[in-house]
Design a protein around this nucleic acid. Structure first.
Lengths: 244, 244
DNA sequence: CGTACGCTTGACTCGTGTCAAAGCCAGTGG
DNA sequence: CCACTGGCTTTGACACGAGTCAAGCGTACG
């Protein structure tokens, strides 16, 4: 089903710079193909040459690679508003895969529509470019995080998730719905699920978080950021305000 | 000293797409400020708000972050032709630092000159954007590499360095000058220098590499790529041809 | 009501860090 | 020309974080 529902995109870009009337009109004219996708389902796979990009309207997704040993390495989580494969606009072959974690609502946009949009609206080009640069910055954050020990790395990851969910209005001051399994968290940190479990228990025992019934509550934000050595600069958020 | 020596940029972009006459003229008009910088010297630091970008004309540099525990985490190495902080064109505050490893020759270009260039030449915008997307892809490669065990990760890193140096003509079929210390390699892999040393010896003992007098020789390319689970797709090279 | 998936726990193994010391090499200055 | 110095590499002994294997438990859903 094709519609023109790019309200999400408009809102997203409007949070980056103030959109002109002409730009908003052009954005709303974009043909968007909306699809609902079950949980744990590939959206695009490594090696493909996509002819379209997509943005997440609802749900949580992740980028991942499979190594030679068959392990899944999660490279990033994606929250509503993200455009995880925007890079395919200029890199023809995808070097990683993207799959849903929870059931998702996805909006697809053809490359040529985006390219035409960019040709006519340089400020939109800049905004999209900026999006991909922030992705790169998050990857840098994850490289560093991969070298922390597991307790600290887990704290850092949880901080990032809360801040990013808050940025799109999906977390309140201290808690959010987190439908990510321990096995997925462990794939994101490069540790075993057994160890992920132990580390989460340590974080609970330290009184930093509570995690039950798919809800993460941060009981001690200061303590959690300090345990995770978390500095939100790398997320390049607009207002720079992390969760409290 | 300001000159117009952007031959390097022209060559680089020409390897990505065929440059028109108008584009080449515009590139050659770019004011470039050339500087020689000693080894182990910061070029730009985290937290700065650069008003210019730079490209490396000669030498090896690296991007890094300092963690809360004071460790230096190297995020990427940079070879001649690279523009390590191109992102500062759209992200105002730098979230990492860039320093030289060997003595370097650097060409600085003001942001406003680059912005004017991009406004007039959309294809050059795309080429620059593409550069930053490849950086992001390399970061993804490093996230995965951080999860390999040290022996494999070191093999992977050496493969990447050889391939990237070959791509700019700084390595022949099987060997290259590698003026990177074991301590720098260990910071790039997130392991101790002691362990980096042991792992290099294992690679030598396995007959995969020779490393002496600042020269890396790959004795068994197939064996090295297999040890490192190396697939050059993520480097998004033009001809796709890795070292043999 | 059963079955599957996710979470939890314990015991043992192994990769890697840390500490400490020694060797090596190149550049510097007497 | 040679001794001195500092940075880089190498080696050994020991400690610890994290993986693996294996089993049990809880709970959501068909």
């Amino acid at each position: 089903m094709t519609s023109h529902d790019s309200t999400f995109l408009v809102r997203k870009l409007d949070s980056i710079f103030s959109i002109s009337e002409g730009e908003e009109t052009a954005l709303r004219k974009l043909p968007v193909q909306v699809a609902e996708i079950r949980g744990r389902q590939d959206i695009v796979g490594a090696g493909e040459r996509p002819s379209r990009c997509f943005f997440i309207k609802d749900g949580i997704a992740c980028s991942y690679k499979i190594t030679g040993t068959g392990d899944r390495e999660i490279l990033n989580f994606h929250v509503p508003g993200d455009m995880p494969d925007l890079q395919s606009l200029h890199l023809d072959v995808l070097d990683f895969s993207i799959c849903t974690i929870t059931p998702c609502v996805i909006g697809f946009i053809q490359h040529d529509a985006l390219n035409r949009l960019c040709e006519r609206h340089p400020r939109i080009t800049s905004a999209f470019w900026r999006e991909t640069l922030i992705d790169a910055s998050v990857f840098r954050g994850w490289i560093v995080n991969a070298r922390r020990e597991a307790y600290s790395a887990m704290a850092h990851l949880l901080c990032e998730l809360v801040v990013r969910l808050r940025a799109v209005g999906l977390a309140d001051a201290s808690s959010c719905e987190l439908r990510i399994t321990q096995s997925e968290l462990s794939d994101a940190l490069g540790i075993s699920t057994v160890h992920a479990n132990r580390v989460l228990q340590e974080l609970r025992a330290a009184g930093l978080i509570a995690l039950k019934e798919r809800t993460l509550s941060v009981l001690d934000w200061k303590g959690l950021t300090s345990a995770g050595d978390f500095d939100p600069t790398y997320l390049h958020l607009r207002d720079g305000s992390p969760a409290r």
